[in-house]
Amino acid sequence: MQQLITTLLNGLTMGMVYAAFALALVLIWRSTRIVNFAQAPMAMVTTYIAMVLIEGGLNYWLAFILALLSGFVLGAFVERVIVRPVEGKSDINAVILTLGLFIVLHALAALVFGSDYKSFPAPFGVRGITVGGHSLAITPFGIFTIVAVIVVMLLLLLLFQKTDVGLQMRASAFNPEVARLLGVKVSSMLTLGWALAALVGSLSGLLIAGGNLVHPGYMDSVVVFGFVAAVLGGLDSPLGAVVGGLIMGIALSLVSGYLGSGLVSLAALLILVAVLLVKPGGLFSHASERKV
């Protein structure tokens, strides 16, 4: 029982992180029909930026926020400079481009920051909270992770639903041509979408790194889990991505806790294939005729 609770709580924490990552993928997919596989190394690079700043003596929270901002800038740069020429063209080219970027960022990070494992600090304890002599499975950093993701998601929700910019972003994603006719600067909205997505992706990278070891490949499996989570939710739906992320977090935590951590990626693969074959439109789709 104790182990089950530990596993579930751990899954919840990881689920929030996967949800954030899946959300980043969905934001980009919705607006540009590109799955940004380079999201993982982009998040990794921003985590290294935070680490360098912290090691340089900067306050943890300042470094955290600067890293998120650098993710924002990196996302905008990638959309404007790298991805723009292939938007709306063959999707194979777009995917290959993001993979090229994947390799480049990996190599750059190893060159600049080194490819060995380094420990990333956490602002809170990473040991379980003790209440009345019982040690709970949830750690202060875990609570921070959950809260941080929820706060960012609520802010995004506010942005998209309550502001003019958010409305313009949604209009650009759903119907770029009509949006342009109405005076929306669609190309700026796409850039902003990528930038925000990269910020959310960076958040997940920083949260995974907290109290853990980082190296240039530490986000590689997260892109897989985040992608599966996004597909679970239908790839088009931000809410679906969040639910998908939580499902993935808990499912993978159970696999890791009861079967072994080496099988986690295999489990993700099996979940992905099962969803794509049974409900290709995601768990919440009514119609399954959508071509995937």
């Binding site: 194979i92 072994g260 995937v292």
Partner: peptide, 29 residues
């Protein structure tokens, strides 16, 4: 057989998962 029913980014994602999963199996066993 699974991939034949998928398109574009979905095949990419599924095969990406495969690439990550197989070394994991080697580690597990």
């Amino acid at each position: 057989v699974a991939a034949a029913r998928l398109h574009g980014p979905y095949i990419a994602g599924a095969t990406l998962a495969l690439a990550v999963a197989v070394p994991g199996i080697a580690l597990h066993f």
